[in-house]
Design a protein around this nucleic acid. Structure first.
Lengths: 221, 221
DNA sequence: TCAGTAACGTACTAGTTCGTACATTAGTTG
DNA sequence: CAACTAATGTACGAACTAGTACGTTACTGA
Protein backbone atom coordinates (compact mmCIF):
# COMPACT_ATOMS: atom_id res chain seq x y z
CA UNK A 1 0.00 0.00 0.00
CA UNK A 2 1.46 3.35 -1.04
CA UNK A 3 1.14 6.53 0.99
CA UNK A 4 -1.78 8.82 0.15
CA UNK A 5 0.35 11.87 -0.60
CA UNK A 6 3.22 10.10 -2.31
CA UNK A 7 2.25 9.35 -5.92
CA UNK A 8 3.91 6.13 -7.04
CA UNK A 9 5.93 6.89 -10.14
CA UNK A 10 7.71 4.46 -12.37
CA UNK A 11 10.70 4.21 -10.07
CA UNK A 12 9.10 5.79 -7.01
CA UNK A 13 10.73 9.09 -7.90
CA UNK A 14 8.91 12.21 -6.84
CA UNK A 15 9.98 15.81 -6.90
CA UNK A 16 9.87 17.82 -3.75
CA UNK A 17 12.67 20.34 -3.50
CA UNK A 18 11.78 21.42 0.04
CA UNK A 19 11.65 17.89 1.37
CA UNK A 20 14.88 16.84 -0.31
CA UNK A 21 16.66 19.92 1.01
CA UNK A 22 15.34 19.37 4.52
CA UNK A 23 16.24 15.70 4.49
CA UNK A 24 19.80 16.50 3.45
CA UNK A 25 20.04 19.03 6.29
CA UNK A 26 18.73 16.51 8.82
CA UNK A 27 21.19 13.83 7.86
CA UNK A 28 24.06 16.30 7.52
CA UNK A 29 23.39 17.62 11.02
CA UNK A 30 23.77 14.14 12.45
CA UNK A 31 26.82 13.33 10.39
CA UNK A 32 28.69 16.58 11.12
CA UNK A 33 27.80 16.34 14.81
CA UNK A 34 29.05 12.77 14.97
CA UNK A 35 32.31 13.12 13.07
CA UNK A 36 33.31 16.77 12.99
CA UNK A 37 33.65 18.86 9.86
CA UNK A 38 36.63 17.10 8.29
CA UNK A 39 35.57 13.70 9.57
CA UNK A 40 32.10 13.92 8.05
CA UNK A 41 31.80 12.27 4.63
CA UNK A 42 29.70 13.76 1.85
CA UNK A 43 29.17 10.29 0.43
CA UNK A 44 27.96 9.04 3.80
CA UNK A 45 25.49 11.91 4.12
CA UNK A 46 24.18 11.20 0.62
CA UNK A 47 23.88 7.49 1.30
CA UNK A 48 21.68 8.12 4.31
CA UNK A 49 19.20 10.29 2.42
CA UNK A 50 16.69 9.12 -0.15
CA UNK A 51 18.56 11.18 -2.74
CA UNK A 52 22.09 11.29 -4.11
CA UNK A 53 25.30 13.21 -3.59
CA UNK A 54 24.55 15.17 -6.71
CA UNK A 55 21.67 16.87 -4.88
CA UNK A 56 23.92 18.08 -2.07
CA UNK A 57 25.96 20.00 -4.62
CA UNK A 58 22.81 21.06 -6.44
CA UNK A 59 21.21 22.60 -3.34
CA UNK A 60 24.15 23.70 -1.24
CA UNK A 61 27.13 24.01 -3.54
CA UNK A 62 29.61 22.03 -1.50
CA UNK A 63 30.59 20.59 1.85
CA UNK A 64 31.47 23.95 3.40
CA UNK A 65 28.20 25.60 2.44
CA UNK A 66 26.31 22.55 3.65
CA UNK A 67 27.96 22.84 7.03
CA UNK A 68 27.13 26.55 7.17
CA UNK A 69 23.49 25.77 6.37
CA UNK A 70 23.43 23.11 9.09
CA UNK A 71 24.76 25.61 11.64
CA UNK A 72 22.34 28.35 10.66
CA UNK A 73 19.34 26.09 10.96
CA UNK A 74 20.54 24.68 14.28
CA UNK A 75 20.95 28.15 15.76
CA UNK A 76 17.57 29.32 14.57
CA UNK A 77 15.86 26.33 16.21
CA UNK A 78 17.46 27.12 19.55
CA UNK A 79 16.64 30.82 19.37
CA UNK A 80 13.03 30.15 18.50
CA UNK A 81 12.70 28.14 21.68
CA UNK A 82 14.16 30.98 23.71
CA UNK A 83 11.58 33.33 22.24
CA UNK A 84 8.88 31.27 23.91
CA UNK A 85 10.23 32.21 27.34
CA UNK A 86 7.47 33.97 29.22
CA UNK A 87 8.75 35.38 32.49
CA UNK A 88 7.60 39.00 32.45
CA UNK A 89 4.97 38.28 35.08
CA UNK A 90 7.45 36.69 37.53
CA UNK A 91 9.52 38.43 40.18
CA UNK A 92 13.18 38.88 39.16
CA UNK A 93 14.54 35.97 41.20
CA UNK A 94 11.94 33.54 39.91
CA UNK A 95 12.42 34.87 36.38
CA UNK A 96 16.17 34.31 36.48
CA UNK A 97 15.68 30.83 37.84
CA UNK A 98 13.21 30.10 35.06
CA UNK A 99 15.65 31.43 32.45
CA UNK A 100 18.43 29.31 33.91
CA UNK A 101 16.31 26.19 33.86
CA UNK A 102 15.19 26.81 30.30
CA UNK A 103 18.80 27.14 29.18
CA UNK A 104 19.74 24.03 31.12
CA UNK A 105 16.92 22.01 29.59
CA UNK A 106 17.69 23.14 26.07
CA UNK A 107 21.31 22.14 26.29
CA UNK A 108 20.29 18.78 27.66
CA UNK A 109 17.76 18.28 24.87
CA UNK A 110 20.07 19.26 22.00
CA UNK A 111 23.44 17.53 22.33
CA UNK A 112 23.89 17.58 18.55
CA UNK A 113 23.63 21.35 18.54
CA UNK A 114 26.28 21.56 21.22
CA UNK A 115 28.63 19.34 19.27
CA UNK A 116 28.15 21.52 16.20
CA UNK A 117 29.03 24.62 18.21
CA UNK A 118 32.17 22.91 19.52
CA UNK A 119 33.15 21.95 16.01
CA UNK A 120 32.53 25.42 14.64
CA UNK A 121 34.75 26.87 17.35
CA UNK A 122 37.56 24.50 16.41
CA UNK A 123 37.29 26.19 13.03
CA UNK A 124 37.23 29.61 14.66
CA UNK A 125 33.66 30.30 13.58
CA UNK A 126 34.74 30.74 9.98
CA UNK A 127 31.52 29.26 8.61
CA UNK A 128 29.16 31.59 10.45
CA UNK A 129 31.47 34.61 10.39
CA UNK A 130 29.83 37.49 8.62
CA UNK A 131 26.33 36.10 9.04
CA UNK A 132 24.49 39.14 10.40
CA UNK A 133 21.39 36.96 10.34
CA UNK A 134 22.74 35.05 13.34
CA UNK A 135 23.60 38.22 15.20
CA UNK A 136 20.07 39.45 14.68
CA UNK A 137 18.30 36.35 15.93
CA UNK A 138 20.51 36.19 19.01
CA UNK A 139 19.58 39.55 20.49
CA UNK A 140 15.91 38.98 21.40
CA UNK A 141 16.85 36.44 24.03
CA UNK A 142 19.25 38.95 25.53
CA UNK A 143 16.58 41.62 25.72
CA UNK A 144 14.43 39.48 27.98
CA UNK A 145 17.44 38.83 30.20
CA UNK A 146 18.25 42.52 30.21
CA UNK A 147 14.76 43.47 31.37
CA UNK A 148 14.88 40.94 34.20
CA UNK A 149 18.24 42.30 35.32
CA UNK A 150 16.93 45.86 35.26
CA UNK A 151 13.87 44.95 37.30
CA UNK A 152 16.05 43.12 39.80
CA UNK A 153 18.41 46.06 40.20
CA UNK A 154 15.52 48.51 40.44
CA UNK A 155 14.03 46.59 43.33
CA UNK A 156 17.40 46.44 45.04
CA UNK A 157 17.48 42.65 44.94
CA UNK A 158 20.29 42.32 42.43
CA UNK A 159 23.64 43.78 43.32
CA UNK A 160 26.03 42.19 40.78
CA UNK A 161 27.74 44.25 38.12
CA UNK A 162 26.85 42.21 35.04
CA UNK A 163 24.93 42.88 31.90
CA UNK A 164 22.77 40.48 29.93
CA UNK A 165 25.61 39.22 27.72
CA UNK A 166 27.84 38.35 30.68
CA UNK A 167 24.99 36.67 32.50
CA UNK A 168 24.14 34.69 29.41
CA UNK A 169 27.78 33.54 29.16
CA UNK A 170 27.76 32.56 32.82
CA UNK A 171 24.61 30.47 32.56
CA UNK A 172 25.49 28.91 29.21
CA UNK A 173 28.96 27.94 30.41
CA UNK A 174 27.84 25.33 32.86
CA UNK A 175 25.03 24.04 30.65
CA UNK A 176 27.39 23.73 27.72
CA UNK A 177 30.32 22.23 29.62
CA UNK A 178 28.16 19.64 31.31
CA UNK A 179 27.02 18.23 27.97
CA UNK A 180 29.99 18.98 25.71
CA UNK A 181 32.72 17.71 28.00
CA UNK A 182 30.90 14.89 29.70
CA UNK A 183 33.05 12.25 28.02
CA UNK A 184 36.48 13.46 29.08
CA UNK A 185 35.12 14.55 32.46
CA UNK A 186 33.84 11.03 32.98
CA UNK A 187 37.19 9.46 32.18
CA UNK A 188 39.15 11.92 34.33
CA UNK A 189 36.92 12.20 37.37
CA UNK A 190 34.74 9.13 37.16
CA UNK A 191 31.50 11.09 37.24
CA UNK A 192 28.79 11.30 34.60
CA UNK A 193 27.59 14.91 34.67
CA UNK A 194 24.59 13.93 32.55
CA UNK A 195 23.41 10.98 34.64
CA UNK A 196 19.62 11.08 34.79
CA UNK A 197 19.44 10.82 38.57
CA UNK A 198 21.73 13.83 38.98
CA UNK A 199 19.81 16.03 36.60
CA UNK A 200 17.80 17.87 39.28
CA UNK A 201 20.89 18.26 41.42
CA UNK A 202 22.80 20.08 38.69
CA UNK A 203 19.78 22.05 37.56
CA UNK A 204 19.28 23.36 41.07
CA UNK A 205 22.97 23.90 41.61
CA UNK A 206 23.22 26.22 38.61
CA UNK A 207 20.08 28.11 39.60
CA UNK A 208 21.28 28.50 43.17
CA UNK A 209 24.64 29.75 42.00
CA UNK A 210 23.29 32.34 39.62
CA UNK A 211 20.80 33.66 42.19
CA UNK A 212 23.44 33.69 44.92
CA UNK A 213 25.74 35.67 42.68
CA UNK A 214 23.16 38.21 41.59
CA UNK A 215 21.78 38.78 45.08
CA UNK A 216 24.97 38.52 47.12
CA UNK A 217 25.51 41.01 49.92
CA UNK A 218 27.96 43.57 48.54
CA UNK A 219 27.92 45.99 51.47
CA UNK A 220 31.65 45.40 51.84
CA UNK A 221 32.38 46.67 48.31
CA UNK B 1 79.30 28.19 12.85
CA UNK B 2 77.69 25.02 14.10
CA UNK B 3 76.03 24.65 17.49
CA UNK B 4 78.23 23.44 20.33
CA UNK B 5 76.07 20.47 21.23
CA UNK B 6 75.04 19.50 17.72
CA UNK B 7 77.85 17.53 16.10
CA UNK B 8 77.90 18.23 12.37
CA UNK B 9 77.57 14.96 10.54
CA UNK B 10 77.86 14.33 6.85
CA UNK B 11 74.31 15.45 6.19
CA UNK B 12 73.68 17.16 9.50
CA UNK B 13 71.93 14.03 10.73
CA UNK B 14 72.13 13.30 14.40
CA UNK B 15 70.39 10.72 16.50
CA UNK B 16 68.36 11.72 19.49
CA UNK B 17 65.31 9.58 20.03
CA UNK B 18 63.98 11.70 22.88
CA UNK B 19 64.28 14.95 20.97
CA UNK B 20 62.72 13.53 17.81
CA UNK B 21 59.83 12.11 19.78
CA UNK B 22 59.27 15.35 21.64
CA UNK B 23 59.46 17.39 18.47
CA UNK B 24 56.82 15.21 16.81
CA UNK B 25 54.58 15.65 19.85
CA UNK B 26 55.03 19.42 19.80
CA UNK B 27 54.13 19.76 16.16
CA UNK B 28 51.31 17.22 16.40
CA UNK B 29 49.79 19.14 19.31
CA UNK B 30 49.61 22.28 17.20
CA UNK B 31 48.31 20.49 14.14
CA UNK B 32 45.61 18.49 15.94
CA UNK B 33 44.54 21.58 17.89
CA UNK B 34 44.33 23.63 14.71
CA UNK B 35 42.50 21.16 12.46
CA UNK B 36 40.81 18.56 14.63
CA UNK B 37 41.58 14.86 14.57
CA UNK B 38 40.32 14.04 11.08
CA UNK B 39 41.43 17.39 9.68
CA UNK B 40 45.01 17.02 10.87
CA UNK B 41 47.38 15.63 8.26
CA UNK B 42 50.13 13.19 9.14
CA UNK B 43 52.15 14.46 6.19
CA UNK B 44 51.77 18.03 7.41
CA UNK B 45 52.95 17.11 10.90
CA UNK B 46 55.95 15.30 9.43
CA UNK B 47 56.80 18.21 7.15
CA UNK B 48 56.94 20.60 10.09
CA UNK B 49 59.39 18.49 12.05
CA UNK B 50 63.05 17.97 11.25
CA UNK B 51 62.29 14.31 10.67
CA UNK B 52 60.02 12.31 8.38
CA UNK B 53 56.62 10.65 8.44
CA UNK B 54 58.32 7.32 8.85
CA UNK B 55 59.39 8.36 12.36
CA UNK B 56 55.82 9.10 13.42
CA UNK B 57 54.93 5.49 12.68
CA UNK B 58 58.19 4.30 14.20
CA UNK B 59 57.58 6.02 17.53
CA UNK B 60 53.82 6.13 17.82
CA UNK B 61 52.45 3.45 15.52
CA UNK B 62 49.82 5.55 13.77
CA UNK B 63 47.70 8.67 13.74
CA UNK B 64 45.36 7.50 16.49
CA UNK B 65 48.12 6.59 18.89
CA UNK B 66 49.86 9.87 18.13
CA UNK B 67 46.71 11.76 19.07
CA UNK B 68 46.40 9.74 22.28
CA UNK B 69 50.02 10.58 23.14
CA UNK B 70 49.36 14.26 22.46
CA UNK B 71 46.35 14.23 24.80
CA UNK B 72 48.16 12.39 27.57
CA UNK B 73 51.05 14.80 27.54
CA UNK B 74 48.75 17.82 27.42
CA UNK B 75 46.80 16.61 30.46
CA UNK B 76 49.90 15.83 32.46
CA UNK B 77 51.23 19.35 31.86
CA UNK B 78 48.03 20.90 33.19
CA UNK B 79 47.87 18.63 36.21
CA UNK B 80 51.48 19.34 37.12
CA UNK B 81 50.66 23.03 37.29
CA UNK B 82 47.71 22.34 39.57
CA UNK B 83 50.01 20.42 41.90
CA UNK B 84 51.91 23.62 42.52
CA UNK B 85 48.84 25.22 44.10
CA UNK B 86 49.72 26.16 47.65
CA UNK B 87 46.67 27.36 49.52
CA UNK B 88 46.70 25.34 52.73
CA UNK B 89 47.75 28.38 54.74
CA UNK B 90 44.87 30.56 53.45
CA UNK B 91 41.39 30.89 54.90
CA UNK B 92 38.74 28.96 52.92
CA UNK B 93 37.34 31.94 51.06
CA UNK B 94 40.75 33.18 49.98
CA UNK B 95 41.79 29.62 49.10
CA UNK B 96 38.77 29.12 46.84
CA UNK B 97 39.38 32.44 45.16
CA UNK B 98 43.00 31.49 44.59
CA UNK B 99 41.97 28.11 43.14
CA UNK B 100 39.46 29.81 40.87
CA UNK B 101 42.04 32.29 39.60
CA UNK B 102 44.59 29.57 38.99
CA UNK B 103 42.08 27.62 36.91
CA UNK B 104 41.12 30.77 35.04
CA UNK B 105 44.73 31.63 34.27
CA UNK B 106 45.58 28.13 33.11
CA UNK B 107 42.73 28.01 30.66
CA UNK B 108 43.73 31.39 29.33
CA UNK B 109 47.35 30.30 28.95
CA UNK B 110 46.63 26.99 27.20
CA UNK B 111 44.11 27.47 24.39
CA UNK B 112 45.61 24.55 22.47
CA UNK B 113 44.88 22.24 25.38
CA UNK B 114 41.28 23.41 25.43
CA UNK B 115 40.88 22.77 21.74
CA UNK B 116 42.28 19.26 22.19
CA UNK B 117 39.76 18.58 24.93
CA UNK B 118 36.93 19.82 22.70
CA UNK B 119 38.12 17.59 19.91
CA UNK B 120 38.45 14.56 22.15
CA UNK B 121 34.89 15.09 23.34
CA UNK B 122 33.63 15.16 19.76
CA UNK B 123 35.12 11.69 19.60
CA UNK B 124 33.49 10.76 22.90
CA UNK B 125 36.82 10.43 24.69
CA UNK B 126 37.63 7.23 22.84
CA UNK B 127 41.35 7.96 22.74
CA UNK B 128 41.79 8.45 26.46
CA UNK B 129 39.15 5.94 27.49
CA UNK B 130 40.68 3.23 29.63
CA UNK B 131 43.72 5.28 30.53
CA UNK B 132 43.80 4.82 34.28
CA UNK B 133 46.93 6.96 34.22
CA UNK B 134 44.79 10.02 33.53
CA UNK B 135 42.33 9.16 36.28
CA UNK B 136 45.21 8.88 38.70
CA UNK B 137 46.83 12.21 37.90
CA UNK B 138 43.48 14.01 38.08
CA UNK B 139 42.67 13.21 41.68
CA UNK B 140 45.39 15.17 43.53
CA UNK B 141 43.91 18.47 42.39
CA UNK B 142 40.54 17.37 43.72
CA UNK B 143 41.98 16.50 47.10
CA UNK B 144 43.17 20.05 47.63
CA UNK B 145 39.73 21.34 46.67
CA UNK B 146 38.10 18.81 48.98
CA UNK B 147 40.18 19.94 51.95
CA UNK B 148 39.31 23.58 51.35
CA UNK B 149 35.61 22.71 51.17
CA UNK B 150 35.83 20.74 54.41
CA UNK B 151 37.56 23.58 56.20
CA UNK B 152 34.95 26.01 54.90
CA UNK B 153 32.07 23.88 56.07
CA UNK B 154 33.71 23.21 59.43
CA UNK B 155 33.98 26.93 60.08
CA UNK B 156 30.36 27.44 59.05
CA UNK B 157 31.33 29.75 56.18
CA UNK B 158 30.35 27.38 53.39
CA UNK B 159 26.76 26.29 53.20
CA UNK B 160 26.45 24.83 49.67
CA UNK B 161 25.85 21.14 49.10
CA UNK B 162 28.65 20.39 46.64
CA UNK B 163 31.65 18.16 46.66
CA UNK B 164 35.03 18.76 45.09
CA UNK B 165 34.11 17.22 41.72
CA UNK B 166 31.00 19.39 41.32
CA UNK B 167 32.88 22.50 42.35
CA UNK B 168 35.63 21.68 39.89
CA UNK B 169 33.04 21.32 37.13
CA UNK B 170 31.47 24.63 38.08
CA UNK B 171 34.73 26.54 38.01
CA UNK B 172 36.07 24.85 34.88
CA UNK B 173 32.84 25.46 32.99
CA UNK B 174 33.20 29.19 32.73
CA UNK B 175 36.98 29.10 32.20
CA UNK B 176 36.57 26.54 29.45
CA UNK B 177 33.57 28.14 27.75
CA UNK B 178 35.17 31.57 27.70
CA UNK B 179 38.14 30.28 25.71
CA UNK B 180 36.62 27.39 23.75
CA UNK B 181 33.53 29.19 22.49
CA UNK B 182 34.92 32.67 22.12
CA UNK B 183 34.63 32.57 18.33
CA UNK B 184 30.96 31.71 17.98
CA UNK B 185 30.11 33.85 21.00
CA UNK B 186 31.81 36.78 19.32
CA UNK B 187 29.83 36.33 16.11
CA UNK B 188 26.51 35.87 17.92
CA UNK B 189 26.75 38.49 20.64
CA UNK B 190 29.44 40.82 19.39
CA UNK B 191 31.59 40.45 22.47
CA UNK B 192 35.10 39.05 22.77
CA UNK B 193 35.15 37.14 26.05
CA UNK B 194 38.94 36.95 25.87
CA UNK B 195 39.61 40.64 25.24
CA UNK B 196 42.66 41.64 27.28
CA UNK B 197 40.96 44.64 28.92
CA UNK B 198 38.10 42.46 30.16
CA UNK B 199 40.32 39.82 31.66
CA UNK B 200 40.18 41.12 35.23
CA UNK B 201 36.46 41.67 34.97
CA UNK B 202 35.78 38.04 34.09
CA UNK B 203 38.35 36.74 36.54
CA UNK B 204 36.67 38.62 39.36
CA UNK B 205 33.21 37.74 38.15
CA UNK B 206 33.91 34.03 38.35
CA UNK B 207 35.55 34.32 41.77
CA UNK B 208 32.65 36.41 43.09
CA UNK B 209 30.14 33.93 41.80
CA UNK B 210 31.80 30.87 43.28
CA UNK B 211 32.24 32.55 46.67
CA UNK B 212 28.67 33.87 46.63
CA UNK B 213 27.39 30.40 45.91
CA UNK B 214 29.45 28.64 48.56
CA UNK B 215 28.69 31.19 51.28
CA UNK B 216 25.06 32.04 50.41
CA UNK B 217 22.60 32.35 53.26
CA UNK B 218 20.62 29.12 53.26
CA UNK B 219 18.57 29.72 56.41
CA UNK B 220 15.44 29.38 54.29
CA UNK B 221 16.31 25.81 53.24
C1' DT C 1 87.39 -2.63 15.50
C1' DC C 2 83.59 -4.65 14.02
C1' DA C 3 79.18 -6.67 14.37
C1' DG C 4 74.65 -5.64 15.88
C1' DT C 5 70.93 -2.64 16.54
C1' DA C 6 68.40 1.60 17.13
C1' DA C 7 67.31 5.47 14.50
C1' DC C 8 66.36 7.35 10.31
C1' DG C 9 65.13 8.40 5.01
C1' DT C 10 62.94 7.52 0.28
C1' DA C 11 59.71 6.07 -2.62
C1' DC C 12 55.64 4.06 -3.31
C1' DT C 13 50.67 2.19 -3.03
C1' DA C 14 46.02 1.05 -2.02
C1' DG C 15 42.11 3.17 -0.77
C1' DT C 16 39.45 7.11 -0.07
C1' DT C 17 36.96 11.52 -0.94
C1' DC C 18 35.34 15.76 -2.86
C1' DG C 19 33.57 17.22 -6.78
C1' DT C 20 31.65 17.14 -11.73
C1' DA C 21 30.39 15.86 -16.72
C1' DC C 22 26.72 13.98 -18.73
C1' DA C 23 22.23 11.95 -19.11
C1' DT C 24 17.34 11.79 -17.73
C1' DT C 25 12.71 12.63 -16.00
C1' DA C 26 8.86 15.07 -13.64
C1' DG C 27 6.18 19.13 -13.46
C1' DT C 28 4.72 23.58 -15.61
C1' DT C 29 3.34 27.01 -18.69
C1' DG C 30 1.96 29.13 -22.97
C1' DC D 1 0.16 19.13 -25.77
C1' DA D 2 4.64 20.55 -26.60
C1' DA D 3 8.39 23.00 -25.28
C1' DC D 4 10.87 24.29 -21.23
C1' DT D 5 12.94 24.12 -16.80
C1' DA D 6 13.63 22.44 -12.20
C1' DA D 7 14.95 18.42 -10.11
C1' DT D 8 17.21 14.18 -10.13
C1' DG D 9 20.40 9.99 -11.12
C1' DT D 10 24.87 7.63 -12.87
C1' DA D 11 29.41 7.14 -13.58
C1' DC D 12 33.75 8.75 -13.23
C1' DG D 13 38.22 11.22 -12.18
C1' DA D 14 41.85 13.98 -10.01
C1' DA D 15 43.83 14.75 -5.81
C1' DC D 16 44.75 13.48 -1.49
C1' DT D 17 46.15 10.54 2.60
C1' DA D 18 47.29 6.96 5.91
C1' DG D 19 50.33 3.64 6.00
C1' DT D 20 54.46 0.55 4.44
C1' DA D 21 58.41 -2.00 1.95
C1' DC D 22 62.91 -1.45 1.60
C1' DG D 23 67.28 0.55 2.12
C1' DT D 24 70.80 3.33 4.87
C1' DT D 25 73.52 5.30 8.62
C1' DA D 26 74.92 6.49 13.33
C1' DC D 27 75.90 4.77 17.64
C1' DT D 28 77.11 0.96 21.20
C1' DG D 29 79.27 -2.68 23.45
C1' DA D 30 82.14 -6.70 23.38
Amino acid sequence: MTGVDEPAHRNGRIRDAARTRAEILDVATEEFARSGYAGARVDEIAARTRTTKRMIYYYFGGKEQLFTAVLERAYSVIRQAEQALDVEHLDPVAAIRRLTELTFDHHEAHPDFIRLVSIENIHEAEHIAGSEELGRISSPALEVTGRILQAGRASGLFTAHVDAVDLHALISSFCFFRVANRHTFGVLFGRDLTAADQREHYRNMLGDMVIAYLTADRSAD
